[in-house]
Amino acid sequence: MATRKVKRLYRSDVRQARRLLRGHTRKTPVFHTDILGPRGPVPVTLKLEYLQHGGTFKVRGCLNALLQTRGDKTGVVLASAGNAGIAAALASALRGMSCTVVVPESASHTKVAAMWSHGAEVLWHGTTYAEAHKYARQLAAERGAMPLHAYDLPEIVTGAGVVGLEIEEQVRGRPPVLVAVGGGGLVAGVAVALGLRGRVIGVEPEGAPTLHAALAAGHPVDVDVSSVASDALGANRIGDIAMEVAQRYGVRSLLVSDDAIVMAREYLWREFRIVVEPAGATAVAAIQSGAYVPAPGERPVIVLCGANTDLATL
Protein backbone atom coordinates (compact mmCIF):
# COMPACT_ATOMS: atom_id res chain seq x y z
CA MET A 1 0.00 0.00 0.00
CA ALA A 2 1.04 3.62 -0.47
CA THR A 3 2.61 5.36 2.52
CA ARG A 4 -0.08 8.05 2.62
CA LYS A 5 -3.69 8.09 1.59
CA VAL A 6 -3.97 9.50 -1.91
CA LYS A 7 -6.90 10.60 -4.01
CA ARG A 8 -7.90 7.83 -6.40
CA LEU A 9 -7.67 8.96 -9.99
CA TYR A 10 -9.87 7.69 -12.81
CA ARG A 11 -10.19 7.97 -16.57
CA SER A 12 -12.75 10.76 -16.10
CA ASP A 13 -10.06 12.86 -14.36
CA VAL A 14 -7.74 12.42 -17.34
CA ARG A 15 -10.55 13.35 -19.72
CA GLN A 16 -11.08 16.54 -17.73
CA ALA A 17 -7.37 17.32 -18.03
CA ARG A 18 -7.59 16.84 -21.80
CA ARG A 19 -10.43 19.35 -22.00
CA LEU A 20 -8.43 21.90 -20.03
CA LEU A 21 -5.27 21.36 -22.07
CA ARG A 22 -6.92 21.51 -25.48
CA GLY A 23 -5.22 24.25 -27.48
CA HIS A 24 -2.34 24.53 -25.02
CA THR A 25 -0.40 21.33 -25.75
CA ARG A 26 0.41 19.30 -28.85
CA LYS A 27 -1.20 16.02 -29.77
CA THR A 28 2.06 14.28 -30.57
CA PRO A 29 2.16 11.83 -33.50
CA VAL A 30 2.88 8.11 -33.58
CA PHE A 31 5.26 6.30 -35.91
CA HIS A 32 4.77 2.66 -36.90
CA THR A 33 8.08 0.95 -37.62
CA ASP A 34 10.38 -1.95 -36.68
CA ILE A 35 13.29 -1.79 -34.28
CA LEU A 36 16.04 -4.34 -33.93
CA GLY A 37 15.69 -6.80 -31.03
CA PRO A 38 17.87 -9.77 -30.02
CA ARG A 39 16.04 -12.07 -32.44
CA GLY A 40 15.55 -9.64 -35.32
CA PRO A 41 13.15 -6.82 -36.22
CA VAL A 42 10.29 -6.14 -33.78
CA PRO A 43 7.18 -4.24 -34.96
CA VAL A 44 6.51 -1.28 -32.66
CA THR A 45 4.66 2.01 -32.55
CA LEU A 46 6.67 4.95 -31.26
CA LYS A 47 4.72 7.71 -29.51
CA LEU A 48 6.76 10.80 -30.33
CA GLU A 49 6.11 12.68 -27.10
CA TYR A 50 9.56 14.28 -27.24
CA LEU A 51 7.96 16.64 -29.78
CA GLN A 52 5.85 18.16 -27.00
CA HIS A 53 6.41 21.82 -26.04
CA GLY A 54 9.61 22.06 -24.03
CA GLY A 55 10.73 18.65 -25.30
CA THR A 56 9.00 16.80 -22.47
CA PHE A 57 5.64 15.24 -21.58
CA LYS A 58 5.79 17.07 -18.25
CA VAL A 59 4.40 20.26 -19.79
CA ARG A 60 1.01 18.56 -19.85
CA GLY A 61 0.91 18.03 -16.10
CA CYS A 62 2.37 21.40 -15.15
CA LEU A 63 -0.09 23.29 -17.34
CA ASN A 64 -2.96 21.19 -16.04
CA ALA A 65 -2.01 22.13 -12.48
CA LEU A 66 -1.61 25.83 -13.22
CA LEU A 67 -4.84 26.03 -15.22
CA GLN A 68 -6.65 24.84 -12.09
CA THR A 69 -4.94 27.34 -9.80
CA ARG A 70 -7.28 29.39 -7.69
CA GLY A 71 -6.47 32.20 -5.31
CA ASP A 72 -3.77 34.84 -5.32
CA LYS A 73 -0.70 32.73 -6.07
CA THR A 74 1.51 34.50 -8.59
CA GLY A 75 4.58 32.30 -8.32
CA VAL A 76 5.51 28.64 -8.52
CA VAL A 77 8.30 26.78 -6.70
CA LEU A 78 9.36 23.20 -7.33
CA ALA A 79 12.33 20.88 -7.20
CA SER A 80 13.53 19.18 -10.34
CA ALA A 81 16.54 17.42 -11.77
CA GLY A 82 15.59 18.80 -15.18
CA ASN A 83 12.46 18.22 -17.24
CA ALA A 84 9.88 19.14 -14.60
CA GLY A 85 11.72 22.42 -14.14
CA ILE A 86 11.68 23.12 -17.87
CA ALA A 87 7.97 22.27 -18.03
CA ALA A 88 7.10 24.38 -15.00
CA ALA A 89 9.07 27.34 -16.36
CA LEU A 90 7.28 27.11 -19.70
CA ALA A 91 3.84 26.64 -18.12
CA SER A 92 4.42 29.50 -15.68
CA ALA A 93 5.47 31.82 -18.48
CA LEU A 94 2.30 30.98 -20.41
CA ARG A 95 0.21 31.73 -17.31
CA GLY A 96 2.05 34.95 -16.44
CA MET A 97 3.48 33.51 -13.21
CA SER A 98 7.02 33.53 -11.83
CA CYS A 99 8.83 30.22 -11.46
CA THR A 100 11.65 29.13 -9.17
CA VAL A 101 13.27 25.75 -9.71
CA VAL A 102 15.46 24.17 -7.05
CA VAL A 103 17.91 21.76 -8.67
CA PRO A 104 20.48 19.39 -7.14
CA GLU A 105 24.13 20.16 -7.79
CA SER A 106 24.25 17.36 -10.36
CA ALA A 107 21.61 18.96 -12.59
CA SER A 108 22.29 18.94 -16.32
CA HIS A 109 23.64 22.26 -17.62
CA THR A 110 21.62 21.77 -20.80
CA LYS A 111 18.40 21.50 -18.80
CA VAL A 112 19.23 24.41 -16.52
CA ALA A 113 19.86 26.55 -19.61
CA ALA A 114 16.42 25.56 -20.91
CA MET A 115 14.84 26.63 -17.59
CA TRP A 116 16.56 29.99 -17.86
CA SER A 117 15.40 30.39 -21.45
CA HIS A 118 11.78 30.25 -20.23
CA GLY A 119 12.43 32.82 -17.51
CA ALA A 120 12.85 30.63 -14.44
CA GLU A 121 14.95 31.44 -11.41
CA VAL A 122 17.23 28.46 -10.76
CA LEU A 123 18.65 27.71 -7.32
CA TRP A 124 21.10 24.90 -6.56
CA HIS A 125 20.60 22.97 -3.32
CA GLY A 126 21.83 19.57 -2.16
CA THR A 127 23.24 16.65 -4.07
CA THR A 128 20.00 14.72 -4.61
CA TYR A 129 16.47 15.38 -5.80
CA ALA A 130 15.17 14.57 -2.30
CA GLU A 131 17.30 17.32 -0.75
CA ALA A 132 16.25 19.81 -3.42
CA HIS A 133 12.59 18.91 -2.88
CA LYS A 134 12.78 19.49 0.88
CA TYR A 135 14.28 22.95 0.33
CA ALA A 136 11.72 23.79 -2.38
CA ARG A 137 8.82 23.06 0.00
CA GLN A 138 10.40 25.33 2.61
CA LEU A 139 10.97 28.08 0.05
CA ALA A 140 7.39 27.91 -1.27
CA ALA A 141 6.05 28.33 2.27
CA GLU A 142 8.34 31.30 2.95
CA ARG A 143 7.36 33.04 -0.29
CA GLY A 144 3.68 32.17 -0.25
CA ALA A 145 4.16 30.57 -3.66
CA MET A 146 2.36 27.61 -5.19
CA PRO A 147 4.33 24.42 -4.52
CA LEU A 148 4.46 22.02 -7.45
CA HIS A 149 5.62 18.42 -7.30
CA ALA A 150 7.49 16.93 -10.22
CA TYR A 151 5.38 13.74 -10.28
CA ASP A 152 3.32 13.05 -7.13
CA LEU A 153 0.39 15.44 -7.59
CA PRO A 154 -3.05 14.51 -9.00
CA GLU A 155 -3.04 17.27 -11.61
CA ILE A 156 0.47 16.33 -12.74
CA VAL A 157 -0.50 12.68 -13.15
CA THR A 158 -3.80 13.31 -14.95
CA GLY A 159 -2.17 15.82 -17.30
CA ALA A 160 0.47 13.26 -18.22
CA GLY A 161 -2.30 10.71 -18.67
CA VAL A 162 -3.58 12.55 -21.74
CA VAL A 163 -0.72 10.76 -23.53
CA GLY A 164 -2.65 7.55 -22.90
CA LEU A 165 -5.90 8.93 -24.33
CA GLU A 166 -4.04 10.00 -27.47
CA ILE A 167 -2.47 6.57 -27.88
CA GLU A 168 -5.93 5.01 -27.59
CA GLU A 169 -7.15 7.21 -30.46
CA GLN A 170 -4.07 6.72 -32.62
CA VAL A 171 -3.48 2.96 -32.29
CA ARG A 172 -5.87 0.11 -33.03
CA GLY A 173 -6.61 -2.54 -30.45
CA ARG A 174 -5.12 -2.44 -26.99
CA PRO A 175 -1.41 -3.13 -27.35
CA PRO A 176 0.90 -2.95 -24.33
CA VAL A 177 2.37 0.48 -23.67
CA LEU A 178 5.99 0.70 -22.48
CA VAL A 179 6.80 3.78 -20.42
CA ALA A 180 10.00 4.93 -18.70
CA VAL A 181 9.66 5.35 -14.93
CA GLY A 182 11.30 7.84 -12.61
CA GLY A 183 8.89 9.11 -9.97
CA GLY A 184 6.02 7.47 -11.82
CA GLY A 185 3.87 10.38 -12.98
CA LEU A 186 3.75 9.32 -16.63
CA VAL A 187 3.31 5.59 -16.09
CA ALA A 188 0.54 6.27 -13.56
CA GLY A 189 -1.21 8.75 -15.85
CA VAL A 190 -1.18 6.39 -18.82
CA ALA A 191 -2.43 3.51 -16.65
CA VAL A 192 -5.30 5.61 -15.31
CA ALA A 193 -6.20 6.76 -18.83
CA LEU A 194 -6.31 3.22 -20.24
CA GLY A 195 -7.93 1.65 -17.18
CA LEU A 196 -8.36 -2.04 -16.51
CA ARG A 197 -8.43 -2.84 -20.23
CA GLY A 198 -4.96 -1.39 -20.74
CA ARG A 199 -1.57 -3.04 -20.34
CA VAL A 200 1.03 -0.62 -19.10
CA ILE A 201 4.61 -1.68 -18.43
CA GLY A 202 7.13 0.48 -16.62
CA VAL A 203 10.75 0.36 -17.76
CA GLU A 204 13.46 1.48 -15.35
CA PRO A 205 17.23 1.68 -15.24
CA GLU A 206 18.81 -0.97 -13.04
CA GLY A 207 20.42 1.93 -11.19
CA ALA A 208 17.09 3.65 -10.39
CA PRO A 209 14.50 0.92 -9.76
CA THR A 210 11.90 2.95 -7.85
CA LEU A 211 8.80 1.10 -9.06
CA HIS A 212 10.49 -2.31 -9.19
CA ALA A 213 11.63 -2.04 -5.57
CA ALA A 214 8.26 -0.71 -4.41
CA LEU A 215 6.32 -3.53 -6.08
CA ALA A 216 8.64 -6.07 -4.47
CA ALA A 217 8.21 -4.49 -1.03
CA GLY A 218 4.50 -3.78 -1.39
CA HIS A 219 5.00 -0.08 -0.66
CA PRO A 220 7.26 2.81 -1.77
CA VAL A 221 10.85 2.48 -0.59
CA ASP A 222 13.96 4.60 -1.00
CA VAL A 223 16.50 3.38 -3.56
CA ASP A 224 20.02 4.44 -4.42
CA VAL A 225 20.11 6.24 -7.77
CA SER A 226 23.03 5.81 -10.14
CA SER A 227 22.19 5.77 -13.83
CA VAL A 228 22.97 7.44 -17.12
CA ALA A 229 19.30 8.49 -17.13
CA SER A 230 19.26 9.91 -13.61
CA ASP A 231 18.96 13.53 -14.78
CA ALA A 232 15.36 12.66 -15.72
CA LEU A 233 14.70 9.37 -13.90
CA GLY A 234 16.45 10.54 -10.74
CA ALA A 235 13.69 10.15 -8.13
CA ASN A 236 14.85 7.94 -5.27
CA ARG A 237 11.32 6.83 -4.37
CA ILE A 238 8.20 6.10 -6.41
CA GLY A 239 5.33 8.55 -5.86
CA ASP A 240 2.46 7.45 -3.64
CA ILE A 241 -0.03 8.12 -6.44
CA ALA A 242 1.98 5.98 -8.87
CA MET A 243 2.20 3.20 -6.29
CA GLU A 244 -1.54 3.11 -5.74
CA VAL A 245 -2.21 3.15 -9.48
CA ALA A 246 0.37 0.45 -10.19
CA GLN A 247 -1.17 -1.86 -7.61
CA ARG A 248 -4.73 -1.15 -8.76
CA TYR A 249 -4.06 -1.68 -12.46
CA GLY A 250 -1.35 -4.33 -12.28
CA VAL A 251 1.45 -2.24 -13.80
CA ARG A 252 4.62 -4.33 -14.27
CA SER A 253 8.20 -3.16 -14.02
CA LEU A 254 11.15 -4.20 -16.19
CA LEU A 255 14.78 -3.27 -15.58
CA VAL A 256 17.34 -2.38 -18.25
CA SER A 257 21.05 -1.67 -17.99
CA ASP A 258 22.70 1.67 -18.66
CA ASP A 259 24.52 0.06 -21.60
CA ALA A 260 21.17 -0.93 -23.11
CA ILE A 261 19.85 2.62 -22.65
CA VAL A 262 22.89 4.14 -24.33
CA MET A 263 22.64 1.66 -27.21
CA ALA A 264 18.93 2.39 -27.67
CA ARG A 265 19.56 6.13 -27.75
CA GLU A 266 22.32 5.75 -30.31
CA TYR A 267 20.12 3.40 -32.37
CA LEU A 268 17.24 5.91 -32.51
CA TRP A 269 19.63 8.55 -33.82
CA ARG A 270 21.40 6.27 -36.28
CA GLU A 271 18.29 4.65 -37.76
CA PHE A 272 15.66 7.39 -37.52
CA ARG A 273 17.54 10.62 -36.76
CA ILE A 274 15.50 10.84 -33.56
CA VAL A 275 17.28 12.71 -30.78
CA VAL A 276 16.15 11.84 -27.26
CA GLU A 277 17.73 11.97 -23.85
CA PRO A 278 18.63 8.70 -22.11
CA ALA A 279 15.27 8.63 -20.30
CA GLY A 280 13.54 8.99 -23.65
CA ALA A 281 15.26 5.85 -24.92
CA THR A 282 14.77 3.74 -21.78
CA ALA A 283 11.55 2.05 -22.95
CA VAL A 284 13.15 1.27 -26.32
CA ALA A 285 15.96 -0.46 -24.45
CA ALA A 286 13.46 -3.01 -23.11
CA ILE A 287 12.74 -4.20 -26.65
CA GLN A 288 16.31 -4.08 -27.90
CA SER A 289 17.75 -5.90 -24.89
CA GLY A 290 15.05 -8.57 -24.82
CA ALA A 291 13.78 -7.49 -21.37
CA TYR A 292 10.37 -7.36 -23.07
CA VAL A 293 9.52 -9.86 -25.79
CA PRO A 294 6.21 -9.12 -27.55
CA ALA A 295 3.76 -11.95 -28.10
CA PRO A 296 3.26 -13.12 -31.71
CA GLY A 297 1.31 -10.51 -33.64
CA GLU A 298 1.73 -7.92 -30.91
CA ARG A 299 2.94 -4.38 -31.73
CA PRO A 300 3.80 -2.60 -28.47
CA VAL A 301 3.63 1.17 -28.12
CA ILE A 302 6.80 2.82 -26.83
CA VAL A 303 6.62 6.33 -25.40
CA LEU A 304 9.65 8.48 -26.28
CA CYS A 305 9.12 10.91 -23.42
CA GLY A 306 11.83 13.58 -23.63
CA ALA A 307 14.49 15.18 -25.79
CA ASN A 308 16.34 17.61 -23.54
CA THR A 309 19.89 16.48 -24.08
CA ASP A 310 23.34 17.69 -24.97
CA LEU A 311 23.78 16.94 -28.67
CA ALA A 312 27.53 16.55 -28.13
CA THR A 313 26.88 13.30 -26.23
CA LEU A 314 25.43 11.53 -29.29
Rank of each mutant, 00 (worst) to 15 (best):
R60M: 00
V251W: 05
V177G: 03
V203H: 07
P294T: 04
G119W: 08
G54S: 03
A17Q: 07
N308G: 06
W116N: 13
G239L: 04
G23F: 11
R137Q: 14
K47R: 12
I201V: 15
Q247C: 13
L268M: 13
F31S: 06
L215V: 11
R11I: 08
A180W: 03
G202C: 10
P29K: 08
A140W: 04
A150M: 07
M243P: 08
I238M: 10
V228F: 07
A213S: 14
G75M: 05
V162K: 04
K5Y: 12
S80M: 04
R270A: 14
L215K: 06
I274T: 12
G202N: 08
V171M: 09
S226F: 11
S117A: 15
Y249T: 09
V102G: 02
V221Q: 11
V14S: 03
H118M: 11
R18Y: 10
L233M: 11
D13P: 02
A307N: 12
H24W: 15
L36T: 15
A291R: 10
E169M: 13
A89E: 00
W116V: 13
E166P: 07
A84L: 03
V225D: 01
P209Q: 09
Q52W: 01
A307M: 12
R39A: 15
V200L: 09
I238E: 04
I86T: 00
E49S: 06
L67D: 03
H133V: 00
G198K: 10
R237D: 00
G280I: 02
V157H: 05
R143A: 10
R199H: 13
D222H: 13
Q288H: 11
L268D: 08
G198H: 11
G144I: 07
A232P: 03
L46D: 00
A141P: 05
N308M: 08
L36A: 15
G96N: 09
E298W: 05
G40S: 12
I156F: 01
R172V: 11
D13W: 05
R60I: 00
I287N: 05
L255H: 02
K111Q: 10
P43G: 03
E121L: 14
A295R: 15
V103I: 12
A214K: 07
G159H: 06
A91Y: 01
T158D: 05
P41I: 09
M263P: 06
I274R: 06
A229M: 06
G218W: 12
R265A: 02
A307G: 15
R15E: 15
G126F: 00
A217Q: 13
H149Y: 12
A114F: 01
D231S: 14
I241F: 11
N83G: 02
V301E: 04
R252Y: 10
A291V: 07
V177Y: 03
